[in-house]
Amino acid sequence: MEQSLRVKVNGQAVKREVPPRLTLADFLRDRLRLTGTHLGCEHGVCGACTVLLDGDAVRACLLLAVQADGREVTTVEGMGEPGRLTPLQRAFLEHGAFQCGFCTPGFLATGEALLRSGRRLSRAELPDLLAGNLCRCTGYGPIVDAILEAAGSR
């Protein structure tokens, strides 16, 4: 049994028939070949698969694709390209905020949602706001610096 799914992904309208069990992450990666969204644990802890759903940061491994029906998804592929990076991506480059890069798209999504929320971001509260994304390489310091810089540039 497949279900119809209409969703806007990175600004483009997409219509597909999908099985209800298909996760949003697998839909993005396997059906749309948007492989920038990475799967680190598939049980909602590591945050590597974080994408924006109507502007909110969500874990694509815990959502079913059909739950995105009628909504808008933004992945890392919809954020910027080489030569046309978002301020957040530029700040990540500037601060060396990633090493292996596997967790990076998830951090970008969480960071983007924070920046778009319009709230004032402080160094003191970022740990609470970013605790849902894990990185095993950087020790987090440069990620915080990058997000604060991007927030300051708005």
């Binding site: 492989t35 920038g36 592929e77 080489p82 990633f98 970008l108």
Partner: peptide, 8 residues
Amino acid sequence: DPRLITGT
């Protein structure tokens, strides 16, 4: 970095 920051 450029490829890793853009998901490519």
